[in-house]
Nucleic acid binder design. Structure first.
Lengths: 200, 200
DNA sequence: CCTACCGATCGGTAGG
DNA sequence: CCTACCGATCGGTAGG
């Protein structure tokens, strides 16, 4: 049937995207410094010098991975927040969206690289990332503020937000898809832990 | 006066400990893979081949850092738990002890290396670490169980413990000693967030 | 994107 | 612990 489809589009402009995806996997697994350009080239069936046709430096590859990871999470959680509902419903939807991006098969290497390898960026790139991260976390701060107004949480301070980010991002360290617990269950348990028991 | 003290003890058996401390700083700052034996040697005023007089491989240095980090935290939190008191008092003391080890000037590089670089260990060393980590986390599981019995928390499941570890360990990412908030305040806020409002 | 290559650096060792 | 060194590997480039 469509046996030739994949090979036909071999020369499309997404060789670059393939490199980024392979790099995310390797950076997440072995770390940025321990990953070799040759590792990345091998993963996408290129010769060792060829990735430099698509990227100027290894740092640029890291930046591409990290920015794509940040953008994907931001987009997902922003969409969840825009869905509307009570502060509690919005918060629950945001928790689920964040965890799905972090733990899903396709996005988790981007997230892991973002969380663990960003400090290898140079100052200018790091500043760009931090800007996006601050905008992202402002979404959460706002959600907490409205939970507070609705009486669902006692403290909506910055420290509360940081504890929340920690609980969420730490899941990367322990979650296993085969682990019995679904992402939905995990999101629900965190909501239950942080928010006051529902009235009625 | 005692001007010669430091140079007199230059040949004591703690050159090894100096190497471990320097390594912890470098591993925490630049990462294990990006840190060079030459970096470590320079930090303790040795020639580039000399650290190998004290350690067989670079991996052995990482293992030494990581095990010392784990042992220090375990000891501190174990001591806090053994102090006794109500479940809530014990829990609060454990929170404070864990955070002090993570964030204090002297121990934070060990903790950061433990949290971020352990995956560079070989399988056997990693297994040794995980064993110690499991024993450590059992301390927390027990503390949660007793909070539950006392009615201070609704859920003492494993997932709750993992959220707690995340909130705690994530502080490494954002805490700054000059940041206004004391470690004690941070511990207190986390306790307030997780536990039911005190009766009375 | 491949071929062929370069200078630099790395972990580790022998021999004292 | 230092001196002197080795083989291997790395990020990156010129020239096609």
């Amino acid at each position: 049937m469509a046996a030739s489809r994949k090979s036909l589009i071999k020369d499309e402009p997404n060789r670059r995207a393939e490199i980024v995806r392979a790099a995310s996997r390797l950076f997440a697994d072995k770390g940025y410094s321990a990953t070799t350009i040759r590792d990345i080239a091998r993963a996408v069936d290129m010769q060792s010098g060829s990735p430099f046709y698509h990227f100027r430096t290894k740092h640029d590859m890291l930046l591409a991975v990290v920015l794509e990871g940040m953008a994907t999470i931001s987009r997902a959680v922003g969409a969840a927040a825009a869905q509307g509902g009570t502060p509690r419903e919005i918060f629950d939807a945001m928790l689920l969206a964040h965890l799905e991006q972090l733990l899903a098969e396709d996005g988790r290497h981007f997230a892991a690289t973002l969380l663990h390898e960003s400090h290898h960026l140079e100052a200018a790139a790091l500043a760009e990332l931090i800007e996006q991260k601050d905008a992202y976390e402002a979404l959460w701060q706002k959600a907490l503020r409205e939970l507070r107004r609705a009486g669902d949480i006692a403290d909506d301070s910055h420290v509360t937000r940081l504890f929340l980010m920690g609980a969420l991002n730490w899941t990367v360290q322990w979650y296993h898809p085969k682990g019995g617990r679904s992402v939905r269950q995990i999101a629900r348990q965190l909501s239950d832990l942080l928010l006051n028991p529902k009235s009625r």
